[in-house]
Nucleic acid binder design. Structure first.
Length: 439
RNA sequence: GGAGAAAUGGCAGAGUGGUCGAAUGCACCGGUCUUGAAAACCGGCGAGGGUCACACCUCCGGGGGUUCGAAUCCCUCUUUCUCCGCCA
């Protein structure tokens, strides 16, 4: 079995998916898109480069007109000062013409630039070389596995049955007040939920992540900054009255803290953790696998976010993976780590490790964390840069990971820790819960 | 929600129609001095596009307008502050 360590040795690609990068590395981009099984990758890149060419040509033409116009304006000023009004008036007529030209060109440039931007927004991140090729989750690579899968007693139940049996989660009540996918946690269920949030936050803080509390609604600029827009348009709950979206993950508000920011090199690394509820419409995903806590419209998650120097981002990714491992170890849950293949990799990520906990009663793996390096993909949209040693501004790297997503951890806990006498709370959580058993 | 004020480089803060992409201070980078550091002094230092490199173009909260010419005048939007109202 391969170790996840390997990522730290990878050389990151700089300036990913800025137009200049595509111009200089056309083939790399096409190859990357193909790894994601994107149909018509070559055409898409060609079209983008074409749009770029057109934009630059228009820009150059406009610049020349403006330069001429600026020159004349200066001369007019001088003539006026010298009292030579006739000469000035003569030149004025000339500038009128130029003005019309520049107006038309500006409009054209605007169109060209928008066309280019629309194309650029369609391009996902280029996968890191470690990303295995493949199209479905079957092709994900298992890189690590740890923890014994417990032998459950005869009559062990899936978590939704346990939730009912001990009256700790009420799905019907949630249906009544909101709808499917909005459970109500009760009694020890609510307390356990709160205990987990605090435990995760404490673990993250101890590892150096500064805690932040952020808004749960974000504006459009933030959605574009981290790449949820336009890619995940229909997946977020949209508040039309104020043109805001409910966050699908804390990644959005926390990373956007650094939108339009110019850092200094010694500001790195920046580490944040935050707890938020997450809202996802999950349009189109129904069926047997969404039962109970497996897939919800609202769920709680504690997130970790890092802003890193490009040279350090893959070491940072390793650190995040190790950190999540530690937490799962402390909880005593059996888990495995997958390296996502090209087809399963998110739009914005260059490399992603998914953590899955084994749900014994359901006999299946549940995704509970996703840790990714976005390299410069988000930074490019966020305009998150730093001044490098040469005094030039350069895009930073952003990373994030769940540490951890609550519902499936809870599902795993309930199922794996059940005994005929009740659910035994992992030792590390007892101080947070104030009880050691749910019965 | 009503009234008023404001928005300028990493930060602070000048600048009210032409030589302003923008004084000054701080921060930052380089140098002199010093055993080293601090202080002092000298020099450099906004961002983006474009170019082999220059040239050149754009940007003073966003958008639009007036003008030959706008950081500066007008309209509009957003945000912030102060006062009033409402309120967890």
């Amino acid at each position: 079995m391969q170790q996840t360590r390997k990522a730290g040795l990878i050389k990151p690609t700089r300036s990913m998916l800025q137009i200049a990068f595509i111009r200089a590395h056309r083939e790399v981009v096409i190859k990357g898109l193909l790894k994601r099984n994107i149909a018509g990758a070559e055409t898409l890149v060609s079209k983008t480069l074409e749009a770029d060419e057109i934009r630059r040509t228009t820009q150059a033409t406009l610049d020349a007109v403006l330069a001429e116009s600026n020159k004349l304006s200066k001369e007019i000023g001088l003539f006026f000062k010298a009292g030579e009004h006739q000469k000035a008036t003569l030149l004025k007529q000339k500038t009128t013409q130029l003005k019309e030209q520049s107006k038309a060109l500006t409009a054209q440039l605007q169109k060209n630039a928008t066309a280019l931007q629309d194309l650029l927004y369609q391009l996902p991140n280029i996968p890191n070389q470690l990303v295995p090729s493949g199209s479905t989750e079957e092709d994900n690579e298992t890189v690590f596995e740890e923890g014994a899968i417990p032998d459950l007693f005869e009559g062990a139940l899936p978590h939704w049955e346990l939730a009912k049996k001990y009256d700790i989660i009420d799905f019907e009540l949630g249906n009544k007040i909101t709808g499917a996918g909005f459970p109500v946690y009760k009694g020890k269920g609510a307390r356990l939920q709160r205990a987990l949030i605090n435990f995760f936050l404490d673990q993250n803080t101890a590892a150096g992540y500064q805690e932040v509390q952020v808004p749960h609604l974000v504006n459009e600029a933030s959605g574009y900054g981290t790449g949820q827009l336009p890619d995940k348009e229909g997946q977020m709950y949209h508040v039309t009255e104020d043109n805001l979206d409910l966050i699908p993950t804390a990644e959005v508000p926390v990373t956007n803290l650094y939108r339009d920011v110019l850092l200094k090199e010694n500001d790195f690394p920046i580490l944040h953790t935050g707890y938020t509820p997450c809202f996802r419409r999950e349009a189109g995903s129904y069926g047997a696998h969404v039962r109970g806590l497996n897939r919800l419209h609202q769920f709680d998650k504690v997130e970790i976010v890092r802003i890193e120097h490009p040279d350090k981002s893959y070491q940072a990714l390793d650190l995040m993976v190790d950190h999540v491992k530690d937490i799962l170890r402390a909880l005593g849950l059996p888990y495995r780590i997958l390296r996502l293949c090209g087809g399963d990799l998110g739009f914005t990520a260059a490399l992603t490790y998914d953590f899955e906990v084994y749900s014994t009663a359901q006999s299946r793996w549940l995704e509970i964390s996703s840790v990714s390096n976005f390299e410069t993909f988000q930074a490019n949209r966020l305009k998150l840069r730093f001044k490098n040693k040469q005094g030039k501004s350069e895009l930073a790297h952003t990373l994030n990971g769940s540490s951890l997503a609550l519902p499936r951890v809870l599902a795993g806990l309930l199922e794996n820790c059940q005994t005929p006498e009740g659910i035994v709370i992992p030792e590390v959580l007892v101080p947070y819960c104030g009880f050691d058993k749910i019965d």
